[in-house]
Design a protein around this nucleic acid. Structure first.
Lengths: 110, 110
DNA sequence: GACACATTTCTATATTTATGGAAATATAGA
DNA sequence: TCTATATTTCCATAAATATAGAAATGTGTC
């Protein structure tokens, strides 16, 4: 993990709409959701959603996969893990078990 | 944890200077560091640092404690934990052990 | 009170970011 | 090819954020 990248990733979820999108996808699991489905669930206009999806995607926090006419977006759990690990890295000077930094294990890496 | 608060907290660390400050304090442990010490270590001008410390403080991610002429800033581990937990909440629809969400235990709550 | 030191507030400026309608692009089926 | 559906790009505008010098405030010591 690199500082600038971490800032980019944090910026990408430091927004009401994008945080909602990201959490929705984190909860949706590996298959993710189609853009239209996200737009509907969160009541975000298409063009606005597209802008936000691009931000998240560019930051590497979500992945896009085209399937027929739909584009499925899903959370990138590995990236999320790296980011959270960066935040808690060497927590409390490594003393104590202050930070038992283990979070999300990618469930299947095909 | 509430959505708006999470956005505020993420925004507060979604900045190069503030992320550096926050990580420095996370690593410094419960005693924290005086403002002048942070300014020196990170080469950030006083007025700029003060602005950033206020942002982090306002978001609840760091605490301030005056001690004589110095003001010591320290990471608020509980807030950090809540935030990270919010991000990974109900990860992968609760199936699998995809997200073993446990992170940082506050080391001493006096 | 006078002085040094630590930190914050004030201020103006520069930069980045968010919004959503309208038009454009892409995909698929008849 | 025509039509419907899904998504993105373009664009202008509005709003929020970052920067750091200078002045102000607070704290301790003599």
């Amino acid at each position: 993990m690199n500082h600038t990248l971490a800032v980019t990733q944090l910026s990408s979820i430091a927004n009401e709409a994008r945080l909602a999108i990201f959490r929705l996808l984190v909860q949706a699991g590996v298959n993710g959701l189609a853009a239209g489905s996200i737009s509907e669930k969160l009541a975000i206009p298409n063009s606005t959603l597209s802008f936000h999806l691009k931000e998240l995607s560019h930051a590497g926090l979500i992945n896009a996969q085209q399937q027929s006419r739909y584009i499925y977006y899903s959370a990138n759990y590995e990236t999320m893990n790296s980011l959270l690990a960066y935040l808690t890295e060497n927590c409390c000077a490594g003393e104590q078990d202050c930070c038992t930094t283990t979070i999300c294990n990618t469930q299947n890496e095909e």
